[in-house]
Amino acid sequence: MSPSVIYHEVRDAKVRMMRAGAGEPLVFLHGAGGLSPWGPFLEDLSKNFDVIAPEHPGFGDSGDGAFIRNVADMAMYYLDFLDSLHAGAVHLVGTSLGGWIAAEIAVRNCSRIASVSLLAPAGLRIKGVPIGDNFIWGPEEGTRNLFFNQAYADKLLAVEPTEEEADRQLTNRFMATRLGWEPRWFSPSLQKWLHRIQVPSLVLWGEEDRLFPVEYAKVWGESIPAAQVQIVPNAGHLMQIECAQDVAKRLLSFLAGR
């Protein structure tokens, strides 16, 4: 099923949003690379849920994100966004940067959140466990380092992006820089508030993640009271792409069992 694409307006910001499926609402928050085309992962989720995938302000075709200076701003924006859906409590799913945003939303206010699922989220820093430097990686190593199964990287690298796509990638990279350059991909004040996430939570981590090492999974699990942690084997950072079925299955089973 191909999703409908709409432009959803919250206050002054208009964001592009893909939506498909029926059931309880599930909001998917994308990572620093931007909102990927609708793929098997969201497709699987949409069989049981009303999947809503907004493109963050400042990314891709969503409007100017000048008013978003940091991830805390982004979290406040999404609290407005959740209000504007008039959909009751949503299942929040975020990957990488999107996972960080999801956590920042949830520590502020869980009243519109039914559950939180974090896929290799940014947002924390463990001293002595360095993360990869995605801002210094060249285009090829940057792509390769996001996957365990290099066939996915090969496939992506074989395609020369169109001019339009290259512009989108650059737009996304600019916004990601604003949000994640310094301090690098974390907020010093997030971890001490994670106890406020009082809804069922799932932390998924690719065992072979070369951007955010799998050691981070444990700390997230210890910091969110009701979190279960699952390590996904043979998966890198973009596990929802290279292990789409496995990750969707784990997520659906968590959501069914909560």
Binding site: F135, I136, W137, E163, L170, F174, A176, T177, R178, W181
Partner: peptide, 19 residues
């Protein structure tokens, strides 16, 4: 990636440069 980190140039200048 090292010479022109995002924002060092404006987005429009950067798009033109990359093109």
């Amino acid at each position: 990636e090292m010479l022109l980190p995002p924002g060092y140039m404006s987005l429009s200048s950067m798009k033109a440069t990359m093109k």
